[in-house]
Structures are given as structure tokens and as C-alpha cells.
Design a protein around this nucleic acid. Structure first.
Lengths: 335, 335
DNA sequence: TTGAAAGCGCTAACAC
DNA sequence: GTGTTAGCGCTTTCAA
């Protein structure tokens, strides 16, 4: 591997000139530039970015903490992050945490050893270990799609989760449903609570209320959606409509409902959240809330970049709009 | 951020001793070790890995080129890569290429600027730009889940694709199917050709042959599966069974078949490939080929590591076993 | 067992 | 416009 000295030697200039030619060509004379570039070519020179980064004290990499990379919603968010990162000359380090604190701490720790200039946390936990908290205070971090529990020090890029849940409640109510079930995500998650609150709020606005027995806990997985539906549909009070807090759980729920001999939506309406691509291909296709996943990723990265560069943020909270997509899995209540 | 000099000063030893204490504690006396570790603690010192890596000339990162991160099969492969990478002290840089050469070249190029010590290519294209080929020759790379077209310089971790397709053909034949349709992946892909050949081979073994009119081209996406099924099911000869070369296309195909008023599997059997989690939750659940995705990722990373370290490989070709999972989407032919 | 010092490849301040 | 050089934080050889 040839280095900058080699190129300097070949072109008969100093290493500083080579460096300048590469970073800011305007600052060297055309003749010199040409000679240097020719030497670069001949030497097959590629700058050692490890050295450049070290020299500049930055890694130009960001660590993305994702609870579950197999979730297509997060895949889309990551795509958005990656595109924006590439535009800005950053690379993306992937940390699939499975929602486990030990993994989060491991990956978050990479920002403390200068392997990443900043963090994007897609989960709701403060990712650093307690013992690292002091050091971590100066690490640029943004939260996307979630909010870190009881910690408003970090900028957030999120959906209007409450509004989305309200819209979904309204959708059900307009279809005549009154016995509404919910399969939530993990209750530690602030956005799960937002959705729950929004849903409830809308019900109350219509003189209804959420029956606590019809709220079951899920984990954003296909199988937990199936389990949740099983609980709801075999309970003493059977809901006529079920709101699952992500599409995977909704797909699991539809599967389970059918397994129990019910028709969707004739016997029970089921809706999801996220609008992952699979949701168009279920039978029936899934009513859901569209989240602008890529945009969320992009905003998160752009926000993080500003923090890294010490630029001021217009706002520490970016709330993106949702869209309710009504498809075949919800219909008028047939009670 | 405190550095190694600060720790040296605090503990009254040289930076060399601090370095040794951290990398190989046995080589310093117990008393010194204790003092140094105490100073590390007090200073809140974390080694700057950017500097360490630069000094060692390695990034301890690998770049993973993935054609489509939203494909759950690849997510699982990446999980396997990441776990293995973590075990080996490596980090994972993500390069979502969308199958586009320009993206591949961009990300692959990062290995030429020392940002990655090696590459894992999950697609079938030689990822470097032509002009980089000379330099790239010394870049450690392994191919997983795919084989680079006409290039056997790189180790491969793959499935017994031909065997899997044979098994699927046998499955159909045993169920009495004779008019067999296929929705392939991109034909440039060697593994697609392997599967096609394997399928055909098995048919011939039973005195049958593949009707070229029943082979349509897909792109491993939900919508291309639906399109493929549409072509097949509306053609002059309608197959009684369709083999889709991944689960997403199969899910698209099932959706399309139902849309056209057909019952699956009563009117047409449909099978997939990969055994992604969604395949258990379709209606009917999907007959498919299970690929050990995480294991493939792990092996790829372990193999790459050996190349990076200059260790000999036992074999440059690792072929992993498949398993045919028969579910509800295939049944006896009802012609 | 420990310390002094060179060096990894690049950038940038400073001098000309 | 260009060159000289210090320095980024660490590892590692060489001496002691």
C-alpha cells in the first residue's frame, strides 16, 4: 500500500501539497495538481482513512442501536440512516441489540473509545452502562422511533404516536366497533404508552372507554401477536376489533384468528402499525398506520450530524406525520 | 478525554507500561498493574481505539455488502455475522447496496482506504470498480449465500442449492404434480441457476422436463412474486404447482393466486425458499426450504477472519445443509 | 520489569 | 503556492 510520502516523492512535491491537492485542489497550482494526480494514479494511491480519521480525532462513523434488525420497519429506518450517512461522508456501524442491555452497553461503549462519533438509539433504554454515564454525557446521541425513558437530554425523531392511535380508534368507532382489544408492545416503551393513551383518549371522546381486560401485552413479534390474539379471542369478552401495535403482531393475530375458525374482518377486525411491505400481501390485506420510516432514519442522521458538528438544533423534538391506510382487515362491525 | 499519557502521569509509570498493562497484564508486576488500573479508573480512561487501530494498521471492522437489508433472510445472515464479529473483536459496517454496482463499488472501496479489513459480499457481483481491481486483489473477501459470477478466487459459504431445488422438485412430484412452474430470482445469480438446474435435473430423473414457458423471472421481492404468479396463472398452460425462489415471492404469489380466485393449495400449490419467519404465518402457511441463515453469517465471518489473519483455510467452499419444511401451501395435485 | 523513543499516515499551523 | 514540521494516541522495539 503506497502512502502519501510515496506520492510526494513521485511528484516531487511535499506531503503537505499532496494532502492539499486531495482535500482542496483549488489551493494548489494547476501544474502541481496535475503532477500530483498523475503520481496518485501511478502509485495506485488511496489515502489511508484510518490515519486521516485518527489525525482529525474523529471516526466519521455512527453506531446504530437497533433492537431487532429482522423487523422490516427497522430495516427501512436503517436505510434512511445509511443514505443520509453516505451523503455526509459517514459510515454506519450496526449494533443489533435484541433489546438486551448488555448488548446496548457494548455497542454504545464504542462511542467512548472513539470508534463512533455518535449514536442513534432506536430503542427506549438509555444505552450506556451506569459506570460510563459520566463519560457518556458528552457523546452525541439521538433517539429515533422511540424515546429514552425518563431522559429528555437527547433529541428525538418520532411519529405522532398518540395521534396515530387516535386515528385508529376513530377508524374502529366509525365502523361501529365498541368492544376494542389491543395488543400492545412492551409497556416500558414510551411510544407504546403514547399509543395506548391516544387510543383511550379518542374512546373517551366518544363516551367509550378501554376495557383493561381487552388490553394484552405483546413484544412486537409475530408469535406474540398470535398469542395476544389467542388471549383476546378466547376470553370471556371477545373484542370485535383488535389494534396491534405493529404489523408483525397483526399478521400473527390474523393467523391466530383464522386458526380459531374466525373470519377476518367479518368476525373480527384487525389492524396493525408501521405499514411494512408484507402488510399489503396478507389475506386480508392489513389496515395499518404508515410511518415514514426512511425519513425518520434520515432525520435522525441529520440531527446527529448537527450535534457532532456542534451546530444548533432548531428543535430537539421532530414529530413526523402518519397516515392511516385502510385495507381489507377492518370492516363494519357485524355484531 | 484523557489519554494514555495522563494515565502514565497519574500512576508514575511510562506510557509503554500503561499500554502493556491494558493489553497484556501478565507482563507487568502486580504492584504496577494495580497502580495503573487505579489510575485508569480515576482518570476515566478509555483507550482511543482509533489510535490503536491506526497504529496497528487495521480497522478491526468488516464491511458487509447486502443487496437488500429489508429482506428478513439477509437480516438473519447479518445477525450471524455480527455475533461472530463481536466474538472476534470486530465491528460490522453496513453497506446496503440495493444490488446496484455504484453502491457496491462505493462500499467495497472502503476496504481500499483501510476503513475495513475485509468484505463479506452477499450478492453475486464482483463488488470493486474495474479501476480498483489491481488494488483490490489483496483485499480479504468472502462470499456468502451467493457466488461471485465467474470468479473463484474467493471463498464461498453457501447452501446446497441444487440439492434443495431437487428436494423441492421431488416434493412436488411425489404429490402428483406434473405441470410445474417456477418464479426464479435474477438469472445473473449463480445460485438461481443452481436451483434451476437442480430442479430440472430431478424432473428429468423422473422422466419429466421443465417447460420453459412455465419459468418466469422474479426479483426476490413480494411484488415480483405476485407478477410472476400472475403470468403463470393467466398463461395458456397453468401450472398446478409453483416453486418461488424465495419466501417473499411465494407470499406475493399466494396473494396473487387468491386474488385471481384460486385456492391455495387446492387449485395451485406454492412453495418458497429461505424459511423466513413470516412464512409460518401466511395463509396457508408456506412450504419452503430452511436455510441456516445465522450459521451462514457466522461461517462467513469466521472464514473472513482467517483470511485477514493469513491463516490457512481448510476449504474455500463451505456448503451447508438445507431442510425442506412441508407446510400447508402444497398438497396433492387435484387435476 | 520498565522506560525512552521511533513510527504508523495524515493534517494543519507556520514560514517562506 | 509550497515546504517544513509538530503532533494526533497508541504500539513496539531496543536498552537498561
Amino acid at each position: 500500500m503506497s502512502n502519501i510520502r510515496e506520492v510526494a516523492r513521485r511528484s516531487g512535491v511535499s506531503v503537505a501539497t499532496v494532502s492539499r491537492t486531495l482535500k482542496d485542489p483549488q489551493r494548489v497550482s494547476p501544474q502541481t495538481r496535475e503532477r500530483v494526480l498523475k503520481a496518485v494514479e501511478e502509485a495506485g494511491y488511496r489515502p489511508n482513512l484510518l490515519a486521516r480519521n485518527f489525525s482529525s480525532g474523529k471516526s466519521f462513523a455512527v453506531m446504530v442501536l437497533v433492537p431487532n434488525i429482522a423487523n422490516p420497519f427497522f430495516s427501512k429506518v436503517i436505510r434512511g440512516i445509511e443514505k443520509a450517512a453516505q451523503d455526509q461522508g459517514y459510515s454506519v456501524l450496526l449494533g443489533d441489540t435484541k433489546g438486551e442491555p448488555t448488548h446496548e452497553q457494548f455497542y454504545a461503549g464504542m462511542a467512548l473509545t472513539n470508534q463512533a462519533d455518535g449514536l442513534i438509539q432506536l430503542d427506549s433504554r438509555y444505552p450506556f452502562a451506569d459506570k460510563d454515564a459520566a463519560l457518556a454525557a458528552s457523546v452525541p446521541m439521538v433517539n429515533a422511533c422511540e424515546r429514552i425513558v425518563e431522559d429528555d437530554r437527547y433529541p428525538v425523531v418520532e411519529l405522532d404516536n398518540s395521534g396515530a392511535a387516535q386515528a385508529m380508534a376513530r377508524h374502529f368507532i366509525e365502523l361501529g366497533h365498541r368492544r376494542l382489544g389491543i395488543v400492545t408492545g412492551p409497556l416500558e416503551s414510551p411510544i407504546v404508552r403514547d399509543r395506548l393513551a391516544g387510543f383511550d383518549e379518542e374512546l373517551q371522546r366518544h363516551g367509550l372507554e378501554l376495557n383493561p381486560n381487552l388490553v394484552v401485552n405483546g413484544e412486537f413479534t409475530l408469535s406474540s401477536g398470535a398469542e395476544g390474539a389467542h388471549k383476546l379471542l378466547s376470553g370471556p369478552i371477545v373484542p370485535s376489533a383488535i389494534f396491534c401495535m405493529n404489523d408483525e403482531m397483526a399478521i400473527g393475530a390474523i393467523h391466530q384468528a383464522k386458526k380459531m375458525g374466525l373470519q377476518v374482518p367479518a368476525d373480527v377486525s384487525i389492524a396493525g402499525f408501521d405499514n411494512i411491505e408484507f402488510s399489503q400481501f396478507t389475506d386480508p390485506s392489513l389496515t395499518t398506520i404508515d410511518q415514514p420510516a426512511e425519513t425518520m432514519g434520515r432525520y435522525a442522521m441529520e440531527t446527529l450530524r448537527k450535534i457532532i458538528d456542534g451546530k444548533p438544533l432548531k428543535s430537539s423534538r421532530t414529530i413526523l406525520p402518519f397516515e392511516l391506510i385502510a385495507r381489507g382487515s377492518t370492516s363494519r362491525c357485524h355484531d
